[in-house]
């Protein structure tokens, strides 16, 4: 009986994962570029690149325990949580700051809507709902650049 329950949960989780909304990197329609590649997204979120198209880019994070942040860290930054923590500690020594944190996807989407040079990660449905420009898309852990 136990194995049956386990199997049920594994299959349910796999099903939900397959049909989960994809994660996108989105920005305001006036954002200076139309697409980003994986390396550039990583470098913006790790504060290795600060300007694009002559404008200072403002990356936005979701809260520490938000499911989408975990997905973003795994599939885009490709770093474990403790690696990211150590990374930000090193940048603290070098005078750099981690991205600003907003509490929900709706808060991020509203912020992106009003600030031209901010970018954030959201579920695709949320980005479409707020009519944001999709710069990069990750679906089921596989990344693809938005053409």
């Amino acid at each position: 009986m136990k194995w049956f329950v386990k199997l049920f949960f594994i299959l349910s989780a796999s099903f939900l994962y397959m049909y989960a909304d994809s994660l996108v990197i989105a920005a305001n329609r006036n954002f200076p570029v139309d697409s980003l590649n994986l390396k550039t997204v990583q470098k913006i979120y790790l504060d290795k690149i600060r300007f694009l198209g002559g404008k200072k880019i403002l990356p936005i994070n979701l809260p520490y325990n938000h499911f989408l942040r975990k997905k973003f860290e795994n599939s885009v930054l490709k770093m474990k949580r403790f690696e990211i923590e150590r990374y930000w500690l090193k940048t603290h020594y070098m005078g750099h700051r981690p991205p600003k944190v907003l509490k929900s996807q709706d808060a991020v989407a509203s912020f992106l809507k009003s600030i031209d040079n901010a970018i954030g990660y959201l579920e695709k449905g949320t980005a479409i709902k707020y009519k944001l420009k999709i710069l990069y898309e990750v679906q089921n852990g596989k990344s693809k650049s938005k053409k």
């Binding site: 994070n61 923590e85 930000w88 700051r97 981690p98």
Partner: peptide
């Protein structure tokens, strides 16, 4: 346990 990202920011 893990810490929140607030701790190491100065």
């Amino acid at each position: 346990k893990s810490i929140s990202d607030d701790f190491s920011e100065g």
